[in-house]
Design a binder for these strands. Structure first.
Length: 121
DNA sequence: ACATTGACTCGCG
DNA sequence: GCGCGAGCCAATG
C-alpha cells in the first residue's frame, strides 16, 4: 500500500482547478489563486504547482501574475516574452511587464455588482 | 537532519 | 521606485 503522497495532492488539485477557471482576458495573483483554492498564504505553492504542471492540461498560466500585476519571470526571458504575448493575444494590456489589476483583475464573482460601472474593454 | 531555493507577499525606510 | 527582512513551505541537495 503505498500510502501515498501527502495530502498536498489535494491542495495541488485545488490550485489547478482554480487556475483553470480564470476567465479569458482576466488575470489573478498567485496569492489570490491560493485564497480561492482555500489555501491562504500559500502563494509560493501556487508558483511551484504551476512550474511542475503538465503542459497537457493547457492551463491558462499566463493569467497568473504577482500581487502588483507584474509578470513573475525575469524581464526579457523567454518565459516572460511568451507570457506577455499570450496576454496581449487575449486582449490584456501589458505595459512594462505589468497589468492594471483594477481593470483586468479577476473580480467578477467577488464583486459582480461593480462590473456595471467598470469601464468596459 | 540541516541549508538553500524559489512562477510569492507585505511592511518599512 | 528600490532594497531588506520576515513569513511562507515543499522540493532539493
Amino acid at each position: 500500500m503505498k500510502s501515498g503522497r501527502p495530502k498536498s495532492d489535494i491542495d495541488h488539485a485545488a490550485i489547478i482547478r482554480t487556475i483553470a477557471r480564470i476567465p479569458r482576458g482576466c488575470v489573478a495573483s498567485y496569492g489570490e489563486i491560493a485564497v480561492r483554492a482555500g489555501l491562504p498564504r500559500r502563494a509560493r505553492l501556487v508558483g511551484r504547482v504551476l512550474r511542475e504542471a503538465d503542459p497537457e492540461l493547457e492551463l491558462p498560466w499566463q493569467r497568473v501574475l504577482r500581487a502588483d500585476g507584474r509578470i513573475a519571470f525575469p524581464p526579457g526571458s523567454r518565459a516572460y516574452r511568451e507570457q506577455r504575448r499570450r496576454l496581449i493575444d487575449e486582449g490584456v494590456i501589458v505595459l512594462k511587464g505589468r497589468v492594471n489589476l483594477a481593470r483586468f483583475g479577476w473580480q467578477r464573482d467577488l464583486d459582480a455588482e461593480l462590473w456595471d460601472f467598470r469601464p468596459r474593454r
